[in-house]
Design a protein around this nucleic acid. Structure first.
Lengths: 146, 146
DNA sequence: CCTTGACTTAAAGCTAACTTTAAGTATTAG
DNA sequence: CTAATACTTAAAGTTAGCTTTAAGTCAAGG
């Protein structure tokens, strides 16, 4: 299947203007043209899926371009591309861990406001109760160690 | 305990310049001054911990300021603050889910490059093998449904 | 007393990742 | 044939979140 830029935009969920920008930035190698107009194939859409993955997990466009450039070199760049993917994979795992940590902080705040709303006031909410009730340490407990 | 801005910066892991910027943006209400110089207390550091949580989970500074403003209103704003926290909590859970989805895409790529390096070439790697070997769908499998 | 270093401010500058604008070309429907 | 629509380009503009700069104040140590 072939697609115009607006069809591709619809499919991958990226505005056409942004796709042109990515193309200009060298993120979309070898997009075909017909009368100067871009023609997208399924393989291009699949690559854009990977670009979205890398971009949304925090890889800068510069680095994505490096990855795309390596891809053009074929099998000679397999190891280098593998290293990039492995690094990004570790990076994403770290992000998930970090978000889970922040989620605990928000869990505490959720508990806190629940308690405060029940009491009608946030004065005299005991941080110790959080541990007693949930078995978890209050993340911003003034008495927390470390 | 009291701290200078550079001690506070060290403690919370935010540059002093950025702390001044946050203060200017209204994210740090009622920081004490002594001869015009900011004096940080433990309670301020704890608030900065929450700010870091909100900021790093994607809340814009504008919105953080709204939250901080509400805090100043005391118990009258408990419900509103609770809504903000609940929304951010859901937002973080969505982010984690999204990252786990992207991680699967990277898991596939990891498998792919492993296989390609073993074979010496990425020509003729079967996407079907990924499902056979791991029981998972290849995220950018050209034959994938949906 | 004088220098050093930490602090102060307002304002300008920076970077990434778009987004918009302006001007033009090509295809299609009536 | 004409008008609408979809596309093209280069370049300027936007936004968030800092970061740097310039000019100055203040307290402590030698």
């Amino acid at each position: 299947m072939s697609y115009t830029i607006s069809e591709a935009a619809e499919k991958v969920g990226i505005p056409a203007t942004t796709i042109r920008y990515y193309d200009k930035e060298g993120l979309l190698p070898n997009i075909k043209r017909k009368n100067g107009i871009r023609v997208f194939e399924d393989i291009d859409l699949r690559l854009m899926g990977l670009l979205t993955c890398l971009k949304d997990t925090g890889m800068p466009i510069k680095r994505i371009r490096e990855y795309v450039e390596l891809t053009k070199k074929g099998d000679a760049s397999l190891q280098e591309r593998y290293e990039i993917i492995k690094a990004q994979r570790r990076f994403v795992m770290d992000q998930i861990r970090q978000l889970q940590f922040y989620l605990e902080e928000l869990d505490f705040k959720d508990w806190y406001y629940n308690k405060a709303l029940a009491a009608g006031t946030e004065k005299a909410i005991s941080f110790d109760d959080y541990e007693k009730e949930t078995g978890r340490k209050a993340p911003d407990d003034p008495n927390r160690k470390g």
